[in-house]
């Protein structure tokens, strides 16, 4: 069982985590949901489309506009409270590396802290523990938040991702995060070349074999763009191909921009695996 704050999910569920950026400069949506009302409309849309989780972020992952603590709090805390009030059944995740943000959003109703910078602020997992929230352990190879990768090398990128995320998970356990509330994320593109992200995708089953539930964030990323030589707005098909492989290997949570297409992809993979009956199978059975 996976416990994400107030919400429990059976182990055979594949969960869609919809990205909701309260940023002006994120690479894919480019500020489309920066305004609070626009972000709330996005939440309403992705819930309607079948997302189980929203991942609210106040700071672009890559280099860009400086967002200090006060500004990140301003962008996230009140918004989390509004989403919590309107959608009591929705899992609310917040993408942050700052423990002050972690405490404040959990008090406002967040269920999950998505520490996309891999324990850069060691007190963030303590915030998760204190509020009985879930926590994502991300592999960033010790990168500084918002630092663009450059000439990253690994003896074995998958081994490194496993070692670092499992170590983070054990630290989180030690500070009191519940075992069933921890996820690991290899973090495609984070401190990785396209070659690394492709290899992590190809060998994702090795991360799944650790027993920790795996979250993947593949959506429209540069490794897809470079593999297919396509700009950010044209990477959906490549993203879905990677999503299929990740799901087949056993990933459990999928952080995405495109909910409808991802849901269909995950349903199809689940049906192929035999975990989900077809929606309506009458062909050649009349």
């Amino acid at each position: 069982m996976l416990r994400l704050g107030r919400h429990d999910f059976a182990d055979d569920r594949l969960l869609v985590m919809a990205i909701v950026n309260r940023t002006r400069d994120s690479f894919y949506d480019k500020g489309a949901t920066y305004a609070e009302d626009a972000a709330l409309d996005r939440v309403r849309q992705v819930v309607e489309q079948g997302a189980e989780i929203v991942d609210i972020g106040g700071v672009k992952a890559g280099p860009g506009e400086v967002v200090d603590l006060d500004e990140e709090l301003r962008r996230t805390v009140g918004f989390v409270a509004r989403v919590r009030e309107e959608f009591p059944g929705l899992v609310i995740s917040v993408d942050t590396w700052r423990h002050e943000v972690g405490h404040a959003v959990c008090e406002a109703g967040a269920d999950l802290l998505n520490d996309a910078w891999g324990g850069h602020d060691p007190q963030l997992m303590e915030a998760a523990a204190q509020h009985h929230a879930a926590y994502v352990c991300t592999h960033t190879n010790g990168a500084t938040p918002r630092q663009a990768p450059h000439r990253a090398t690994y003896a074995d990128v998958v081994r490194a991702a496993i070692d670092d995320t499992v170590a983070l998970a054990n630290r989180a356990l030690a500070v009191g995060v519940a075992r069933e509330s921890l996820l690991i994320d290899p973090a495609h593109d984070f401190e990785k070349t396209t070659w690394h992200s492709l290899e992590v995708t190809r060998r994702l089953d090795e991360m799944v074999a650790t027993g920790w539930p795996v979250l993947v964030s593949l959506s429209n990323k540069d490794f897809v763009g470079e593999a297919l030589d396509l700009p950010a707005g044209e990477r959906l098909v490549g993203t879905l191909a990677a999503t299929s492989i990740a799901a087949w290997h056993g990933a459990r949570v999928f952080r995405v921009h495109n909910v409808v297409e991802t849901r269909q992809t995950l349903d199809m993979v689940a049906s192929i695996r035999g975990d989900r009956p077809p929606a309506n199978a009458t062909r050649a059975l009349a």
Binding site: P277, P278, A279, N280, A281, T282, L285, A286
Partner: peptide, 14 residues
């Protein structure tokens, strides 16, 4: 018809 076996049509039951 084999569709009298409930599970064969999947999630729907026409």
């Amino acid at each position: 018809t084999p569709l009298l076996f409930r599970h064969l049509s999947g999630q729907s039951d026409p």
